[in-house]
């Protein structure tokens, strides 16, 4: 063991090395490593967030889908209902129309019958009057018995 000035030289080298490490080695490396650790943590957090977002979106999609299906069913039901209603209404209208036509026709027929009866009656009355006139020509004055004739005509 011999001590000499190497000790001082070594100490100076050591001091310079420590200073160099402190200045140029340690800070950039640790900063970079810290930043990387931070970035990894951020990335993991973002992934987690993305996963949650995806789950929420999937849930929303399922909800929307269910609502849409429900709405479609409702619309279909309403449409069917409306269709049957329209058919029903059309049937009803047709029925009413038919009844009305029938009623009109019946009315017309009745009228025709009535008119025919009337005409017949008038003809009968006229024939009767004519007959009566012919029978009573000599005995009855047409002017004198006009009211009588009219009343007979009205009764027939």
């Amino acid at each position: 063991m011999e001590f000499n000035a190497t000790l001082l030289g070594q100490a100076i080298t050591f001091a310079i090395l420590v200073w160099f490490t402190m200045k140029f080695v340690w800070p950039p490396l640790t900063n970079m490593m810290d930043e990387r650790a931070k970035r990894i943590a951020d990335g993991l957090a973002a992934a987690e967030r993305g996963k949650q977002d995806l789950e929420a979106a999937e849930k929303r999609v399922a909800d929307e889908l269910r609502t849409a299906k429900q709405q479609a069913t409702e619309i279909m039901l309403a449409a069917e209902k409306r269709a049957s209603q329209i058919v029903e209404e059309a049937k009803e209208a047709a029925r009413t129309e038919g009844a009305k036509l029938l009623a009109d026709a019946k009315g017309q027929i009745d009228q025709e019958v009535l008119r025919a009866k009337e005409a017949l009656r008038e003809q009968v009355a006229e024939l009767a009057v004519v007959g009566a006139e012919k029978i009573l020509r000599r005995e009855i004055d047409a002017a004198k018995h006009a009211d009588l004739l009219a009343s007979i005509k009205a009764e027939l």
Binding site: I16, L17, T21, F24, V25, W26, P28, M32
Partner: peptide
Amino acid sequence: GFVFAGIFALVARRARL
């Protein structure tokens, strides 16, 4: 000492994230 300081400083300078 130069070997140590050289390698470490080089790596520190070129360090990639």
